[in-house]
Design a protein around this nucleic acid. Structure first.
Lengths: 130, 130
DNA sequence: TCTAAAATTAGATCTATTCTAAAAACCGTG
DNA sequence: CACGGTTTTTAGAATAGATCTAATTTTAGA
């Protein structure tokens, strides 16, 4: 989490970045806002959105969308996701848990730079009791 | 596109379904609204959203999110996506173009029902001229 | 044709996000 | 360590996307 050129470090940004580093789930913008405001009650939504967009543009967080909500993924390592069909929770799936994806040459789109896999199903908590 | 139990067929729904069947891209709700209104100027946004949600719940369309927009995917066959990093366009990628994804047993999440792969890079139109 | 149930409509409402302009903070430099 | 230009923050307004509401209209079966 280094300081980028021309950008200034502020307590607000520091708190947002620290919260994201510690987050194990995938928080929404509003969850980030609430968490940061507990420590620094001044922080406005605009600052949270600005910072999230800045981090996203810098590639330090990912934006994910599941169950109708935009969420942010602070895990910058290459990884995949598991989404529970019932409760909507999103778990990270280690990159190595999924074998390499082999894809044929796609006409006209030579430059495949990255990929990610979304696995869908029922999480442990949502398994039918049977 | 069969009629479901307890649901009535209307001109609005028919037009929306027909538009989606013919759509090669991944339209937003607003694009569906505009297209349908050209033919039936009465159609309200509420009807469009209702119908899209109904189709989504019935598994007849998929919801996708890329480049900050919620879009709908009328392709009900199992397939993947290619997203252009520069212009944001989303192309369907045939299921067979991507090899089977092998994943290890994921502790506590036995029920993996489906998966999809998102490939990212530059589309043909956005290739650097170099 | 009649009728109950369901759908449509316009507009209000709600939620998420961005914009704005003024005040405040950051930090390199003198 | 104060100065000053630039950047950031802030509160609230504005915008956009989606849902809700209550009244009217339509559907489809008898």
């Amino acid at each position: 989490m280094t300081r980028a050129r021309g950008l200034k470090m502020t307590p607000q940004r520091r708190l947002i970045v620290e919260y994201l580093r510690g987050a194990v789930n995938h928080p929404t913008a509003d969850e980030v806002f609430s968490a940061v405001n507990e420590q620094l009650p001044i922080t406005s939504r605009a600052t949270v959105y600005n910072t999230l967009n800045w981090l996203k543009a810098a590639g330090m967080i990912r934006e994910v969308f599941e169950a109708g909500n935009v969420r942010f993924d602070p895990n910058t390592t290459n990884h995949h996701h598991f989404v529970c069909r019932a409760c909507g929770r999103i778990d990270d799936v280690d990159f190595d848990s999924v074998g390499d994806v082999a894809f044929c040459a796609l006409p006209g789109r030579q430059e495949i730079e990255s990929y990610d896999v979304t696995l869908r199903g029922l999480c442990a908590a949502c398994q039918p009791v049977a």
